[in-house]
Design a protein around this nucleic acid. Structure first.
Lengths: 197, 197
DNA sequence: GGTGGAAAGTTGCCAGTGTAAAGATTATGG
DNA sequence: CCATAATCTTTACACTGGCAACTTTCCACC
């Protein structure tokens, strides 16, 4: 379908390239014009698919929430407990660092986008559902939900921003990868020993 | 000292105004030119104090790490335990949301700035020192350090980005403020009942 | 098989931004 | 009193996002 004039699949190409750029340089320095140049199209071509720069970021966030919701659902249906839900959360952040960053930076997004709102709600509902299975045992159910979410969100955020490394804390774990670190750290929250396979 | 030509205290005024703007609209949309216009100086005046836009952000991050290190040290010297260290961490994020955001977004910063590196190291050392006091009791010391830091960092990040509200999770706590939520949630990590005063 | 929209992409323009060099103004130490 | 440094301004340039008008291609319909 690429005829020299029409790109063929510009929307998907923009999302893919945008995620690469954001992963490398952060969302603030991502430019529609240099993105279009990378893809060999004019600087206004992406506007026909996304409307604006904010539209691209909204699309990335929406895509991210949909992927996260799907992963959490798959994990729940496969019988994964709450700790495994948290591990899956961190794994998503590692696999899709650009999406994760954009999803949780609301100043980059248009909160009134209904598609984004729906995708976010789906992911958050799945997260809280996963928490309910263990929250009753913790004595303080709301605290268990916030604690579980916060600890894995904190691990993901600190790891992605490099602060786990620059603080020297990561080296305390030797050569353990981030998933192992997550199991050991988040495992403390509910005093359930971390399963290692 | 304000003589109509020289501002008198431009450096401090820029830092103050920049923090306000970043708190309201995020660091990506903070502009040196509109900042200078707000302060009634030419758009290049801040460059003589900070060198570049990145220089302003570095200065904010440095200031933030110094304030955080001071707070954590004061808390430790006042006999605060590790939970109280975490509460102080969240309190800092609430009191200085712009600083917190910039401090933990390394793509905004120049990592080779020695002043920034020194301030960051001071804050992180203080944080790990606070963790050591309780980590031995947790069985897995590195996991306790990462777990404690991550849970309060996660709470602060999710709260500042509005995700605790938009997910509906915060309403589970009624009208409790974020500090109470922190005590209850982070308190679960070490199975020590949360003190309420 | 034309034909008339609709979709996709391009060109040209404007306002706003960060950075840089060079000049103007004021403070300060000898 | 004067030279020098610090501070601030002016002017200029390259880059960015958004907008309007135009061109090319696709597609559905008669």
């Amino acid at each position: 379908m690429t005829d020299g004039y029409h790109h063929g699949n510009l929307r998907a190409a923009v999302l893919k390239r945008a995620a690469e750029v954001i992963e490398e340089e952060g969302p603030h320095s991502f430019s529609l014009r240099s993105l279009a140049a990378d893809l060999g199209v004019s600087h206004t071509a992406p506007r026909h698919h996304f409307g604006s720069r904010e539209g691209v970021l909204n699309a990335i966030a929406t895509e991210g929430f949909l992927i996260l919701a799907e992963r959490l659902r798959d994990n729940r249906e496969a019988g994964g407990d709450f700790l495994e839900t948290g591990v899956e959360y961190v794994r998503f952040a590692v696999d899709h660092p650009a999406h994760f960053q954009v999803m949780f930076t609301p100043t980059l997004l248009n909160a009134r986008d209904p598609e984004l709102a729906a995708a976010r709600t789906a992911a958050f509902d799945e997260l809280v559902t996963g928490a309910d299975t263990v929250a009753e045992a913790a004595g303080d159910e709301p605290a268990a939900v916030v604690g579980g979410w916060s600890i894995v969100h904190g691990i993901a955020t600190l790891a992605l921003t490099g602060n786990l490394d620059s603080s020297g804390v990561r080296s305390l774990f030797g050569d353990a990868d981030l998933i192992d670190i997550t199991r050991r750290s988040a495992g403390l929250l509910f005093a359930s020993p971390s399963p290692r396979e």
